[in-house]
Design a protein around this nucleic acid. Sequence first.
DNA 1: AGATAGGATCGAAACGTTTCGATAGGGGTG
DNA 2: CACCCCTATCGAAACGTTTCGATCCTATCT
Lengths: 350, 350
Amino acid sequence: MVARATIEDVAREAEVAPSTVSLAFNDPERVRPATRARVLAAARKLNYRPSAIARRLVARRTDMLAVVVPNTRNPFFGKIFQGIDTEARRAGLDVMLFTTENDPDVERQRLEAVVRNRADGVILVGEHRKGPDPAADLLAELVAMGIQVVLVERQVPGIPSVWGQKREGCFQAVEHLIGLGHRRIAFIGGLLEQGGSYQRLEGYRRAMAAHGLEVRPEWVAEGGFSPAGGREAASRLLARHPELTAFVAANDLMAIGVLRALREAGRRVPEEASVVGFDDIPEAAFVVPALTTVDMPMERLGRRAMELMLRGLHGEGLDGVEEGLPTELRVRESTGPAPESGPTTGRGDG
Amino acid sequence: MVARATIEDVAREAEVAPSTVSLAFNDPERVRPATRARVLAAARKLNYRPSAIARRLVARRTDMLAVVVPNTRNPFFGKIFQGIDTEARRAGLDVMLFTTENDPDVERQRLEAVVRNRADGVILVGEHRKGPDPAADLLAELVAMGIQVVLVERQVPGIPSVWGQKREGCFQAVEHLIGLGHRRIAFIGGLLEQGGSYQRLEGYRRAMAAHGLEVRPEWVAEGGFSPAGGREAASRLLARHPELTAFVAANDLMAIGVLRALREAGRRVPEEASVVGFDDIPEAAFVVPALTTVDMPMERLGRRAMELMLRGLHGEGLDGVEEGLPTELRVRESTGPAPESGPTTGRGDG
DNA sequence: AGATAGGATCGAAACGTTTCGATAGGGGTG
DNA sequence: CACCCCTATCGAAACGTTTCGATCCTATCT
């Protein structure tokens, strides 16, 4: 293990002052070409790598960002991060990533780490349980400290945020089903107390209402955001409400579980029942039947969040910036005309 | 934006020396309880948060790790990172995450960033193209600088590494198929030039050979590591080699694509063809038919890598540590007895 | 009561940069 | 030929901690 060369070593080797070495690297115009060449040669010879740590201490900026996500095993967050990182790299920023496993206490710890590390900004991704944001006060503190905060798929008054238009997306999905003649449509959310599920549920309710369809509470079910959760919720619904002809799931993984539940119940898709998912994960188009789904622009969410972050760091005010990015319905094989058999529409509604 | 309180502000407020404040935080035993209380009160009052930056400059350690992955949209890497982060949090280390998009140049930049940031160690995840590792020399440099390097799903002589036993896993999968009577088995890899695909291919070859079965080069196909890649490769194989009765795919996403290709070709699974995937992603068990697959312990890989990292940082030598973590075959619905129809075994082999 | 040991606290140096005011040359102008 | 201005380079301070040797105080022992 060799002792690392410092800027002084390079200065000595190049026979200039340390400050000149610094200049040669950071403001090449201000140094004579010959001097610069000498410095670079010395640096190469000594294998010099400037210490970002030392630079950060003296500069007021760290050129370092923090991203806080619930986890990275869910590709939903992975894609968002990918978008963030792509833009961060372009901007020359280093990124620290923290996961919280959706635990508010861990989240607080992580945000504390953000300030310990003097990150220039933090992008906080993902929803919390319903109710007031448990991190709101801490976030306000960060803002007061001059740390730029941007939220993704999460909202706190006064803090800029980006999210996918889940309500609208779900509205559209349900309208698609209604257009196909479906009247008895189930909604299967993840944790309903989470904002995201709630927004989707809202979209479902509004679409039903907009077409004069009654929403029965017993048609709304809850399951984990997983295939197992979707399957279980769908099985329960199918057992108690065989009159249902369509299912809207809060994400594609759940929808895959729903497809399986239908298969196990002997209902063919799309002939005897329709299914819509959410997210458009890569396999959605390849599952049999291919899943009709609402495309969430996850990577774009990340990129957009980063753009806002950069604007904020640049000193532009981000007051009141709250952007909903549009989703898109991808119609594939898992939705079709409502079966004509079964109880009449009138009977089903009343 | 309030000026941040420094250790000196706290010292003044508590009427002690800065060094005492430091002691009160980092070595509480060495300070009188009353003093400590006074310091803590002052710190709280001033909302003091120690600067990790300044600490890093003076300490020889940064308590900061870097993780380099190809991307985070693939849950494969996401899960590995999750394992890493879980252990890192427990150890109180902060983690920087860098993505490379599998570009060797970007990878080098990222590794340069690692040394700029003076990370204590770096975990490098994921494969490169076949041939000598393009980062090998740079990695050696890092090691020489005293940066602990651990590899996951990648190997460089002299650097500790962890990986899933893909060769063995694939061997087992193929034996499973052979046990079901299959003789004409296809292998569909991702980029075959990548080590991971290559290892699986090796397992396939060995299993075939172990049972006296001929491996035909035309039964081996290549596609992207995606559902689309799997489907395409399988379609091609099916068109040219209808005699094939089983397909081993390099990951589950590809396997889902293969299932679709079979469906499109009118071959029922598992009655008329069997499919095995790799990874055991959450939806594998819920797809119809549920996918037989080889479980890769991704999160464990990450955790294990972190354990090695910690041992390394602790000064334990990691010379020659190269750990293969066992995979596990999960038999589900997509594999079944080889169809009796078709050409006889003898004819198929010769 | 005086010496001493030991614990608590202090002061200063060090970590490796950036930055800013100061200085030294060098060329042009009057 | 003297003066001035501009550019290239320099020197020193500052960033916020930790650490280590020095100092002070108190309690104990003789």
